[in-house]
Design a protein around this nucleic acid. Structure first.
Lengths: 209, 209
DNA sequence: CTATGATTCAAACACACGTTTGAAACCTTC
DNA sequence: GAAGGTTTCAAACGTGTGTTTGAATCATAG
């Protein structure tokens, strides 16, 4: 089986999608740059839309399983978990993915932003579905680290995701470690402060019980 | 002069761009929905690209001047300025723009995300140019509120912009005030914490001098 | 070596896009 | 109410897109 063609299409498409967007990138451009015949995309992937989804599936699987593995390590290490380490388990795999996946960093993050922006319905839905259980796991871990209920945490985690996605997309390879460190610190402070604001109601409840 | 057609095109285009993206939205779709002839876009705006820019110009002018006006009020009120109020001056106009500009909230924020993602070079450049002096002003105000140098502040402000843009785009009208409050709190805590980390080097410098 | 299935290739297809055109309709001003 | 400039309109143009096709090439198993 000639899996090489499939892979080369996937790699080239990922790069071009990240640089130019999905709609702006044409199959002719992809196949030319990948040194592959035009019809190869439809033969191996079915359609352009399916190709876009395949590009995401590959990276998202990688990113999310790495995140969950690290979270698991943090959770078994101490209970309640350390907030910094939970956030690192969420943030660092993203930065690793940016730097190691051949080529310039931030490509995949740019890709994520485009996915969010373009072609909303189908792609956004598929990504959200693939993210949901990861988000639940991290929201749970953070809430235990903070000692608060996970109810209002989704909002703060969204702040973090927004900050991560936005900055990673603009961060160069050599700054990426510093940025991650700064983001962990920033996020921890924000989460702890928000937890302080939420505590009064909780402790009131506990006083009744 | 029939300015009505121009405006109706602008309004409809803004909505469709926000919902579907620039590339995915066709002039036929815009003109059909705006009850306007197909050629009207080219007649009134020159081209599709020019239309996209015009849509942004209108909102960005509004947003930035409002931000600067509020910042000015905060700065004259007290010196050094209050960090919370500086952040509110940055965040609240964005939320106002979301809710008041007829139709569903978050539209303009979604638009901003798309602008960032799509058509990178031209549009991103134009927006950044229009944003730069505003960012400078806020970075300056924040640095004075924190009592630190504005050198590394850009990064933290990028965190804030990312969080703002990402969450505003997904926030419904009735939640938008809560979200803004939470974001101000979140951002203040993050900025203060980051300032603490930066101080040692600064104070070392001051000790030498 | 040959037959069978998988893969590549050049060419073409149908379609939708942004834009242009030139005439019609409209509005203003004298 | 006619002239002149502005705006609308239906129709078409050229181009580039994703996809399909059918023959050619390749790999593999009998």
């Amino acid at each position: 089986m000639t899996d090489a063609t499939r892979q080369r299409i996937l790699d080239t498409a990922e790069q071009l999608f990240a640089d130019q967007g999905f709609h702006a990138t044409t199959l002719r451009q992809i196949t030319r740059e990948a040194r592959v015949n035009l019809a190869a995309v439809n033969y191996h992937h079915g359609s352009k839309d399916a190709l876009i989804l395949a590009v995401f599936q590959r990276r998202l699987d990688e990113l999310n399983s790495e995140r969950l593995a690290r979270l698991d390590a943090v959770l078994t290490e101490s209970d309640p978990p350390d907030l910094e380490k939970v956030l690192e388990a969420f943030i660092n795999p993203a930065l690793l993915l940016s730097t190691q996946s051949a080529g310039d960093g931030g490509r995949f993050m740019r890709l994520l932003m485009r996915a969010w922006a373009e072609n909303a319905t189908q792609l956004h839905g598929a990504i959200a579905r693939q993210y949901s259980h990861v988000m639940r796991a991290f929201a749970d871990a953070v809430s235990r680290a903070l000692g608060t209920s996970p109810d209002n945490l989704r909002q703060q985690l969204d702040f973090l995701i927004g900050a991560l996605t936005y900055t990673m997309a603009e961060t160069r390879d050599d700054q990426v470690e510093d940025t991650a460190r700064a983001l962990v610190r920033f996020g921890c402070a924000g989460l702890r402060e928000s937890a302080l604001a939420a505590i009064p109601k909780t402790s009131l409840k506990e006083n009744i019980a």
